[in-house]
C-alpha cells in the first residue's frame, strides 16, 4: 500500500511537470510544423512570460489589490500580451528576413536571439534568483496520517487542468477555425497556400503568437509552482520542452502533449526510484532511443520531402 502511494505521488509529480513541458513544447512543434525551423528563442519567451507575470503581480500588490482571481487573470493577460508581442517581434526581426534560406541560417539566428533575450533580461532584471509568490496554496491529502501520505496541491491540479484546457482549445482552433485551416494548409505546402490567396506571413506570425502565449501561461504557472525565477531558467526548460516535442513527434500537437507527459513521468520516476542524478540521463537517453527507432517521434508522420 505504502509503495503504491509512493508510486502515485511520483506519478502526480511527473504529470505536473510533464504538462508544463507540453505547454512549452507546443511553441516548438507548431513553428516546426509550419516553417520547418526550430525556434531556439522559445525558452526565453517562456522566461520573459514568467518575469512579466511577476512584475504584474508585484505591481498589483503595490496597488493593494489582493483578490486572487483578479491577480491571476491580470498577471496571465499581461504575460500573454508581452510574450506574444515578443514572439511576434522575434519572428519579424530575426526569422522572416532569413526565411527560405539554408536551414542552418534561421537556426543560428534563433540561437542568437536566445542569447540576446537572456542577456537582456540579465541586464534589465539582474541575474539573481527572484522569489515568486505562491498565490495558490494548500491541497488535498490522502492516506493514513501515520504513514506516507499523498499530497496533491491545488497548484498541481491547476497546472494539469490548465494544460488540458489549453491543449483542447488549441486542437479545436487548429481543426475548426479559419486561421487553423490556413495553418494546416501552410504547413502542408507554403508556396501553394500562398498561391491560393492565404496570407502566409500573417499565418506564420499567428503561429509564433499562439506558441508564445502558451509559453507565457506555462511561465506564470511554473513560477508559482517552483517559487523562483532567474534569467537562465528558460534555457533549461526550453531544452526539455524541445526534447518533449521531438519525443512526441515534432510538428504534432497531440505528440507534444504525449511527449511532455512521458518525459515528465520518466524524470520523476527516475529520481524517485533510482537517483536524481540520473534524471537527465534517462530523459535524454529516451530521446536518443526514440530518434534511433522512430525518428519521426511517437505521433509524428513520416516527412515527405517537399520540392
Amino acid at each position: 500500500m505504502q509503495d503504491l502511494l509512493y508510486f502515485s505521488q511520483q506519478l502526480i509529480n511527473g504529470l505536473t511537470i510533464g504538462s508544463t513541458y507540453a505547454l512549452i513544447a507546443i511553441g516548438y512543434t507548431m513553428v516546426y510544423g509550419i516553417i520547418g525551423m526550430i525556434n531556439f528563442a522559445h525558452g526565453e519567451i517562456y522566461m520573459i512570460g514568467a518575469y512579466t507575470a511577476l512584475i504584474a503581480i508585484t505591481g498589483l500588490a503595490a496597488l493593494g489589490i489582493a483578490w486572487l482571481p483578479l491577480v491571476l487573470i491580470v498577471a496571465l493577460v499581461c504575460a500573454m500580451i508581452v510574450s506574444s508581442s515578443m514572439g511576434w517581434a522575434v519572428e519579424r526581426v530575426a526569422y522572416r528576413p532569413v526565411r527560405g534560406r539554408h536551414r542552418l541560417i534561421p537556426l543560428i539566428s534563433a540561437i542568437g536571439m536566445s542569447i540576446f533575450l537572456q542577456n537582456y533580461v540579465h541586464l534589465a532584471q539582474g541575474s539573481r534568483n527572484i522569489g515568486f509568490p505562491a498565490l495558490i496554496e494548500g491541497g488535498f491529502r490522502f492516506g493514513a496520517a501515520d504513514s506516507f501520505q499523498i499530497s496533491i496541491s491545488y497548484i498541481q491540479i491547476t497546472i494539469f487542468l490548465t494544460t488540458l484546457v489549453c491543449m483542447t482549445l488549441l486542437s479545436l482552433f487548429i481543426s475548426r477555425s479559419r486561421i487553423g485551416r490556413a495553418c494546416r494548409a501552410v504547413s502542408q505546402d507554403l508556396g501553394m497556400a500562398n498561391l491560393l490567396g492565404i496570407d502566409t506571413n500573417r499565418i506564420i506570425s499567428a503561429t509564433f503568437v499562439i506558441g508564445a502565449a502558451l509559453a507565457a501561461v506555462a511561465g506564470l504557472l511554473l513560477g508559482m509552482y517552483y517559487g523562483s525565477i532567474d534569467p537562465l531558467f528558460g534555457f533549461i526548460a526550453g531544452l526539455k520542452a524541445f526534447t518533449a516535442a521531438v519525443l512526441g513527434g515534432i510538428g504534432s500537437i497531440p505528440g507534444a502533449m504525449l511527449g511532455g507527459l512521458i518525459l515528465g513521468v520518466a524524470e520523476s520516476m527516475t529520481s524517485g526510484y533510482l537517483s536524481g542524478e540520473y534524471k537527465d540521463v534517462v530523459s535524454f537517453g529516451l530521446l536518443i532511443l526514440i530518434l534511433l527507432f522512430k525518428p519521426t517521434g511517437l505521433l509524428g508522420k513520416p516527412e515527405v520531402e517537399k520540392i
Partner: peptide
C-alpha cells in the same frame, strides 16, 4: 544523493 544545480523542480526528491 545529488541534484543538478540550476534545477527548479524538486518534487520527486521531496517525495523521496
Amino acid at each position: 544523493e545529488g541534484i543538478t544545480a540550476g534545477d527548479k523542480d524538486f518534487s520527486s526528491l521531496i517525495t523521496k
